[in-house]
């Protein structure tokens, strides 16, 4: 009994020590992001091949499942005809998939060239595993010129920022994450503020005083002042505005222009300081 109590005390002491260590680690890695980045890079390097393979398998299973159901329904009418139809459907499906991928990539690259941005197109290969951090994993990394701090955009608007990079993959912190912040302008009135993540489908436009009224439906674009995102890229549309009497600033909700759950390709663009490192048109 005494031995058990002694063992419990040891466990409690060690656990307390580890908890304190975790607090120090949190504070230290928050102040020195490079330390956390090294760890993230190692894990990303190890997990990216698994994520890529698992993603391919999942897509294959989805595809086989879809085609199986299709064949079952058509076989009831005519077995031989259905075989031929399914073959053609399959080819057509692949072709239209290639066509839409081409279209998306062309849009992304023309978007970049119109704005004279140098960037690398990347495919989304994974998402954050905990669900607490809103992030994505893309299939381009340091070997393609991607560096932490680079902006990630989509023809419809901004997506987020690169937080850690492995050789062939990188992690993107989405603009709707709580810890994201983007310097923005309201397009029509040129009122300046900072957009921060506030939920899965909503962001908050902060630090806009009541002297600068903002209307629902106005478009919010990047200001370029943060030297991360290029100027003039759409962030989203104002969806709700309220001004309480007790506060100095307005409470403004912004609905992001990009549906983060449905993006497949993105464009990683360099800020002014990092443009030299990127290989243009990497995909």
């Amino acid at each position: 009994m005494r031995q058990e109590i002694s063992e419990r005390t040891h466990i409690a002491l060690v656990s307390f020590g580890l908890f304190v260590a975790s607090l120090f680690l949190t504070a230290y890695s928050a102040r020195n992001p490079a330390v956390a980045r090294v760890g993230h890079t190692i894990v990303l390097e190890v997990t990216a091949p698994f994520a890529r393979t698992a993603n391919a398998i999942a897509q294959g299973v989805q595809s086989v499942w879809g085609r199986y159901l299709y064949l079952v329904s058509t076989a009831q009418q005519n077995e031989s005809l259905s075989r031929r139809v399914s073959e053609l459907e399959s080819r057509l499906g692949m072709l239209s998939e290639f066509e839409s991928e081409n279209e998306r990539l062309r849009q992304a690259l023309s978007f970049a060239s119109e704005r004279q941005l140098r960037g690398v197109a990347a495919a989304v290969i994974g998402a954050d595993s905990s669900g607490w951090i809103r992030g994505l994993v893309i299939d381009r990394g340091s070997s393609h010129g991607v560096r932490p701090g680079m902006a990630v955009i989509h023809p419809r608007g901004i997506v987020g920022q690169i937080t850690s990079v492995a050789s062939n993959s990188a992690r993107v912190l989405l603009v709707n994450d709580h810890s994201s912040g983007v310097d923005v302008l309201v397009q029509s009135s040129r009122v300046r503020g900072v957009v921060e993540g506030a939920g899965e489908k909503v962001c908050e436009l902060k630090f806009v005083t009541k002297e600068n009224p903002v209307k629902v439906g106005e478009v919010v674009v990047t200001s370029g002042m943060d030297r991360v995102f290029p100027k003039g890229v759409v962030v989203g549309t104002v969806s709700h505005v309220s001004a309480q009497t007790s506060t100095l600033f307005q409470t403004i909700e912004v609905r992001p222009a990009v549906n983060f759950a449905r993006i497949e390709e993105v464009l990683v663009v360099a800020s002014g300081a990092e443009e030299s490192g990127i290989q243009s048109g990497g995909k």
Binding site: S22, L25, A36
Partner: peptide, 29 residues
């Protein structure tokens, strides 16, 4: 239920920190 178990629990948290968060430590703690 041992010291090794506490270290492993810390390791599990750190693993989640490394794969997700922007800072290391919260999940480990």
């Amino acid at each position: 239920s041992s010291i090794a178990g506490a270290l492993l629990a810390f390791g599990c948290g750190l693993l989640l920190d490394l794969t997700t968060a922007t800072v290391l430590g919260p999940w480990a703690g």
